Amino acid sequence: MNVLKLNLSLAIVVLIMSCNKKSETSTIALHKTNKKNKVEEMAISKKEEIINVALVYLKDGQEEKFEEYKRRGAAILEQYGGKIERIIKPKMLVKGDVELPDEIHFASYPSIEVFNKFNQDEEFMKVRKEFAMPSIKDISIFTSKNTDFKFKKETGDKTKTYGIALVYFKEGEKYRKQFGEYHDEACKIIPEFGTHFERFIAPFESKGRVEKPDEIHRFYFDSPEGMKQMGTDQRMQALFPKRDASLSNLIFFIGEAIL
């Protein structure tokens, strides 16, 4: 009888342990599945994301009106799940031949469908008509998607010095490949000087006087000193001819973040 009770108790313990193990295994499996699904969702989200870049030229004395447009427009955009992610005030045109914009805006949208709905929103169209149109002298807009370039995305702040490059490749796949090789080699060097990447995007639509680039890069430097040191580094100097030989044009702004 005691042996029977002992065997029965052991059987129950084994059963409980098996259930607990199964439950634990199921929890781990579920966690892994959820994690995998989350990663897949993020990948899909990143692929569908739209980034709108605007080079903005303001009329004299209309800065306050344009600030009101930014406040109201951003509030409406947030209702659609989008946001104004970065605004740069250019201080210097390092390379290229364009007029220095007053501001460069980067706005992100979850998808092209959301982008289109936002731009057709009646309230936003009223805000744009009342505040944007009277305050903007000129504007060039590039509607873009993320590129396939894999990089460690980092987020700067208003204390950083920013670089924005509008990249135009020469015609032919070999030049894109050549620029890619330059970029891979440069990316091994520039982190030494406190350089961080925020965006690599490829415009597919544009409007305005500035020609649509093939790619737009946004990055920041921890300090102006680091930026200067990077530009004069012998290894980078040796790579620049390879970069320039692959491009038909390069517009490069240096500025500060106001958002």
Rank of each mutant, 00 (worst) to 15 (best):
N20G: 05
N20M: 15
K21M: 15
S23T: 11
S23N: 15
E24C: 00
E24W: 12
T25P: 00
T25W: 14
S26E: 10
I28H: 03
A29I: 14
A29R: 05
L30S: 06
T33K: 13
N34G: 03
N34Q: 09
N34A: 02
K35E: 13
K36P: 00
E40A: 10
M42I: 11
M42V: 06
A43N: 14
S45C: 02
S45H: 02
K46Q: 13
K47M: 10
K47L: 03
E49R: 15
I50A: 04
A54M: 12
L58S: 02
K59I: 07
D60E: 14
Q62L: 07
Q62F: 05
Q62P: 04
Q62G: 02
E64K: 07
K65I: 15
F66D: 04
E68I: 07
K70N: 09
K70A: 14
R72M: 11
R72N: 13
G73C: 03
A75V: 00
I76Q: 04
L77K: 10
L77R: 13
E78Y: 04
E78A: 05
E78M: 08
Y80V: 08
G81S: 04
G81L: 07
G81N: 11
G81P: 12
G82L: 06
G82F: 11
K83Y: 09
K83I: 04
E85N: 10
E85I: 11
I87Y: 05
I87G: 10
I88A: 03
K89I: 07
K89R: 13
K89A: 13
P90H: 06
K91T: 15
K91C: 10
M92D: 14
L93H: 01
V94L: 15
V94T: 12
V94H: 08
D97P: 02
V98E: 08
E99P: 01
P101A: 04
D102Q: 06
E103K: 10
E103Y: 14
I104F: 11
H105T: 08
S108F: 04
P110Y: 07
P110S: 10
S111M: 03
E113P: 05
V114R: 01
K117A: 11
F118R: 03
N119A: 03
Q120M: 11
Q120N: 12
E122T: 07
E123D: 14
M125C: 03
V127N: 05
R128D: 13
E130G: 00
F131E: 03
F131S: 01
F131C: 07
F131H: 10
A132I: 01
A132C: 12
P134D: 03
P134A: 00
I139Q: 07
I139E: 10
I139N: 02
I139W: 01
S140H: 06
I141S: 07
I141R: 06
I141P: 08
S144K: 06
S144L: 08
